Simulated scan of single mutants.
Amino acid sequence: MNTWTTGAGSGWKVSGGEGYLHYRVWAFCLAKHSVLRGEHMPSWINFLNSDVKKSFMKSMKYLQTGE
């Protein structure tokens, strides 16, 4: 994370992505959404990018077992 300060104020930004969520955050959000809907292995995961799908599966395991 980068911070900056000028005479007019200060702020911060997260490097890389410029306003977009990291794929791991998306994967966790999708997993949480699935758990809340009672979908333990939704069919739509086959449409996810391989990196997102891998993180989704790890997130599902964490949400379902706490590991």
Rank of each mutant, 00 (worst) to 15 (best):
W4C: 13
W4A: 08
T5R: 12
T6D: 08
T6G: 12
T6N: 12
G7K: 03
G7R: 10
A8N: 10
A8I: 08
G9M: 04
G9H: 00
G9P: 01
S10G: 09
S10V: 10
S10P: 02
S10C: 07
S10T: 13
G11F: 07
G11R: 04
G11T: 06
W12N: 14
W12V: 13
W12H: 14
W12M: 14
K13M: 15
K13Y: 12
V14K: 11
S15E: 10
G16W: 06
G17M: 05
G17N: 04
E18W: 05
E18Q: 12
E18T: 04
E18M: 08
G19K: 03
G19I: 00
G19R: 05
Y20R: 15
Y20N: 15
H22N: 08
H22C: 11
Y23C: 07
Y23W: 03
R24K: 05
V25T: 08
V25S: 06
V25I: 01
V25F: 02
W26V: 10
A27K: 00
A27N: 02
A27T: 00
A27D: 01
A27V: 02
A27S: 00
A27P: 00
A27C: 00
F28N: 06
F28I: 06
F28L: 14
C29M: 02
C29H: 06
L30V: 07
A31E: 01
A31H: 01
K32L: 12
K32E: 05
K32M: 03
H33C: 10
H33F: 15
S34I: 00
L36P: 04
L36H: 05
L36Q: 13
R37G: 01
R37S: 03
G38P: 05
G38N: 05
G38T: 09
H40V: 07
M41A: 15
M41G: 10
P42Y: 05
P42S: 02
S43E: 15
S43T: 07
I45H: 01
I45T: 05
I45P: 00
I45W: 01
N46C: 08
N46S: 10
F47L: 14
F47P: 06
F47I: 15
F47Q: 08
L48N: 02
L48T: 03
L48M: 06
L48Y: 01
N49F: 11
N49K: 07
N49G: 11
N49V: 11
N49D: 08
S50E: 11
S50W: 13
D51N: 15
D51W: 13
D51L: 15
V52M: 06
V52F: 09
K53N: 09
K53P: 14
K54I: 08
K54W: 03
K54A: 13
S55G: 04
S55C: 03
F56K: 09
F56E: 08
M57E: 15
M57T: 09
M57W: 06
M57Q: 04
M57S: 13
K58F: 11
S59A: 14
S59K: 01
M60I: 11
K61G: 14
K61Y: 13
K61V: 13
Y62L: 15
L63H: 06
L63Q: 04
L63A: 04
Q64N: 03
Q64T: 02
T65I: 02
G66R: 05
E67Q: 10
E67V: 09
